[in-house]
Design a protein around this nucleic acid. Structure first.
Lengths: 347, 347
DNA sequence: CGTGTGCGCTGAAGCGCTTGAGTGCGGAGC
DNA sequence: GCTCCGCACTCAAGCGCTTCAGCGCACACG
């Protein structure tokens, strides 16, 4: 019995072994016409036996593209690492990528400029076939950049109010209905009798922050509820500070909506520190569920969405784009509010 | 003025433009001898002007390696996404990788088998130069596999008790002194008068869990303190359940050490639910600091380490290995205990 | 003035794969 | 029996870069 050649086998080895040319092997293994079924089967068998895998580099060089998708997370180090959203998203993305043996090139950077640099570099170095863009924002420089580079991309998240995503024909968009979700929260709080609501929001430049703020204002106005939004940088420090300020105001809210789990937990901490009973004197809602929301006492009422599925859909959309499909604008399922122990009737 | 050629410029374009051969361009741009300084400068200028970047694929194909490092995170979906440790580690890793324009290929998988598959695939497809391995465990199949594949690797984290890391010559190790850190915690609690300590630990198969458990037992025995460890899967659910069980025992502990921030927050929630005042009646220590530990009320006393620096050192160690250095075994700085409001004298 | 030496550069091969242009051959069609 | 066609396959070029052998030239040396 012949030994498997040392090092990784190449199609040349397979060609040798099965007595056909390299091109025949290539045809056979890629399932394209030009070889008989008998030959195809034989070649496949030999390839399996030798444990052959296509060299990503060689494929990339000869036109196929590097079979890799890029993802950049632009977050200052201080806010890094606690949000549940992100790894779940990645997990979903990879479920889909792995079906086609695509890799995920991942980068964490400090700011938007660095993110754009990363895209440029990946493009210039032929490192990715396309990218997934998170945290869309107002006046976002990334869609025009990616359009210019001709790098297929899916923007994950709702676009800023007024932007319908048609400006950049090469860029697809998978959006969550932040406005609708906020309306649902206000609905719930309204039904509980809350008339003063505070909203501790995330970064003001993010599109979804703007959508939520706009939706809160509209909904509150419609119902004659008093509501104010306060943006933060998502850090616990600002979560604490903002919560304190809000509670110190002349007419403090009876309910606070937090834009993520970390902020909500920080807010709950402030309530505990002040001896304000939750939910009796104050209701708390967290946007995005996570382990955290379940761990606190009381557990937090949270807006639940299937982030893994969200990631899956984003990756599918990107594949559709890579396969030559149109850049669509797709809406994700509406998240739902899971009532736990942190919301109750207004005092 | 000549237009920049459409698409990405190649060294051929540069060669044309600057009137030398492609090989001269290659020499010039890679800083190797064989070209005059004048030519080198000229070529560099042209390359800059055209915005040239080496094609990762072409480089990879011609011997240089793909300039990419792999990292797999094997976690069941349920435990995913809340630990602060991970993204910080990645952030540190990338600070170092970016210095040499290396990319990070990242994968999240369900279990260890899938992780090994990922390594095999990356190796076969020439996708990575080396990998970083996290969560070392007892009877870990990964070092022998990577050794066999000849894939340079750095194992991040302490090896299991009894394993000195010399078994696999190609694999470096960056370890944190979990035993020493645990000793420091016991020290602190002992000084506060605690005589009954519980340890809500992580996954029993992980090496650092074993080190911590062994160290706790040794330290407690030495001081005549009663101490028990209880392993969990890191989930909040088990954190809650284990804390309840521990507090229900005949002689409940006066201090609990949690193996991560999520477990600790879950534990604090149980205390709140039962009306047990922290730290008056119960002290809580969290292993690994994070936003979470600062957000709760009271804030959690935590074992602080510089995870970003840890990541940086791991990446440096991998580069050293790729540069042909020996596979070393390096110890990271000892973490320190940051006292916050969750520890006090024993009741 | 011839030879040796090293510098600065060129030419060509090769990495593993894809792909379009052939090539040989058996069978259908007249 | 000849042409024509299409199938199954081979050949060779090319993707962008590295690298090694080699080559001409200026200069130093005897």
């Amino acid at each position: 019995m012949r030994r498997v050649p040392a090092g990784r086998p190449t199609i040349k080895d397979i060609a040798h072994e099965s007595g056909v040319s390299e091109s025949a092997v290539s045809f056979a293994l890629n399932g394209r016409p030009g070889v008989s079924e008998a030959t195809r089967a034989r070649v496949r068998r030999v390839a399996d036996r030798l444990g052959w895998r296509p060299s990503a580099a060689a494929r990339a060089l000869s036109g196929e593209g590097p079979a890799t998708v890029g993802l950049v997370l632009a977050r200052p180090a201080s806010t890094l690492g606690v949000e549940s959203f992100f790894l779940q998203l990645v997990s979903g993305i990879q479920e889909v990528l792995s079906l086609r043996r695509f890799g995920l090139l991942f980068q964490v950077v400090e700011d938007l400029d660095a993110e754009c640099d990363a895209y440029r570099r990946w493009w210039a170095e032929h490192r990715v076939d396309g990218v997934l863009v998170v945290d869309p924002r107002a006046d976002d420089p990334r869609p025009p950049l990616l359009d210019e580079l001709g790098l297929p991309a899916v923007v994950i998240g709702s676009l800023p109010p007024g932007d319908d995503g048609t400006g950049h024909p090469g860029i697809a968009n998978l959006w969550a209905d932040d406005a609708g979700a906020m309306a649902g929260i206000v609905d719930h709080l309204d039904a509980l009798g809350h008339r003063r609501i505070a909203h501790v929001a995330g970064l003001p430049e993010l599109a979804h922050t703007r959508r939520r703020i706009a939706s809160l204002r509209a909904e509150a106005e419609r119902r004659g509820i008093e509501a104010h939004s306060h943006t933060t940088d998502y850090s616990d420090t600002e979560g604490v500070r903002t919560t304190r300020r809000v509670l110190d105001s002349a007419a403090p809210p009876t309910a606070i909506v937090y834009d993520n789990d970390v902020l909500a937990v920080a807010g709950l901490g402030v309530a505990a520190e002040r001896g304000i009973p939750v939910p009796v004197a104050l209701s708390i809602v967290a946007w995005d569920d996570s382990v955290l929301c379940r761990s606190t006492h009381p557990a937090l009422t949270a807006l639940v969405r299937d982030t893994t599925a969200f990631g899956r859909r984003a990756a599918e959309e990107l594949f559709a784009l890579l396969d030559g499909g149109p850049a669509r604008r797709v809406e994700d399922a509406l998240p739902h509010l899971l009532e736990r122990g942190s919301t109750a009737s207004a005092p």
